[in-house]
């Protein structure tokens, strides 16, 4: 399979306490794609991610990076983690340093770069995450949203080829959420590969190129957002709801306000684009 930067093949993992978190997960992440991994709590999203940058070792199955099976010796892991950056859900478990600047410098400093290059990367990562003004602030006086941005900067400063974010929008207010999505878009547009875990069906539907649905450690479905979110049986089986754009579109089609053969809109803008004709239809009826 060409073009896949990350692949997981039949991963099985059981935690020491006996929880069977992964029961044969197979996943393919094409280079330059935006992948959303959807699933309820306890579906195994975080466990899967921890495998993708070598933090957990599968009991069975393999992980491949750029076509090669990953190895778990110190040197190979170092190279993998340089290429696959991971942002954790809880910022307080990632931010270890009281100084934002030093926090962000940790990753690049571990790459063995010269201090000048480290500083350049820190400044660039802070700029990319709109966190420049936080550089001189102490970590413990940042708000939750600011902490999340600093976490992201700390990973971006390593300039990874793949960015993995565990629940990047959880706990953020609507404005912060849209800011974060914009940021992930920017990274993806520059050719980066972005993988997120989320429970937000609207986000997964509008943002991702590919959606993977996990439940109880198994992949229930994988495909384009349209394939996944028009499959009602799949959604019901995974305890997921229909994205509002799809729901509204479906209702508009049912009432005959929108032609049924047009492609299903992917986002708010596309949906609104369908509306003027509908308005005219309403006026005619009145």
């Amino acid at each position: 399979m060409s073009g896949a930067i990350l692949e997981a093949l039949d991963l099985h993992y059981t935690y020491p306490d006996g929880t069977r978190a992964l029961r044969g997960v197979t996943l393919r992440v094409p280079e330059g794609s935006r992948v959303a991994v959807l699933g309820p709590n306890g579906a195994g999203k975080t466990t899967l991610f921890l495998h993708l940058n070598g933090l957990l070792r599968p009991r069975k199955g393999t992980v491949r990076f750029a076509g090669r099976e990953i190895r778990y010796d110190r040197k190979s892991l170092g190279e993998l983690r340089r290429a696959v950056g991971m942002v954790f859900q809880d910022p307080d478990s990632q931010l270890f340093c009281a100084s934002v600047f030093e926090e962000v410098s940790f990753g690049p400093a571990n790459l063995g770069l010269a201090p000048e290059e480290v500083r350049r990367r820190v400044r660039e990562a802070l700029r990319a995450t709109d966190a420049e003004d936080l550089a001189e602030r102490p970590t413990h006086y940042l708000s939750y949203g600011q902490k999340k941005r600093v976490c992201l900067a700390g990973v971006l400063a390593m300039e990874p080829r793949v960015l993995i974010c565990d629940e990047p929008t959880a706990g953020l207010d609507p404005r912060q959420t849209s800011g974060l999505i914009e940021l992930l878009d920017r990274i993806a547009r520059r050719g980066g590969t972005v993988l997120i875990a989320t429970q937000d069906v609207d986000l997964a539907y509008s943002w991702a190129d590919r959606v993977v649905v996990l439940k109880e450690g198994r992949v229930l479905g994988e495909g384009t957002p349209t394939e996944i979110f028009l499959d009602e049986d799949l959604l019901r089986g995974a305890d997921l709801t229909v994205p509002w754009v799809v729901e509204v579109h479906r209702e508009l089609v049912r009432r005959g306000l929108v032609p049924p053969d047009a492609p299903v809109p992917r986002n708010r803008e596309e949906l609104f684009g369908l509306l003027p004709a509908a308005e005219a239809a309403v006026r005619l009826e009145v």
Binding site: R81, S93, C97, F106, A109, R119, M158
Partner: peptide, 18 residues
């Protein structure tokens, strides 16, 4: 875990601003 993800290898190397 989070430190390991960023290449932690036993020492917390950081670089301060100038």
């Amino acid at each position: 875990t989070a430190l390991s993800a960023r290449g932690y290898n036993g020492s917390l190397e950081v670089v301060g601003p100038e």
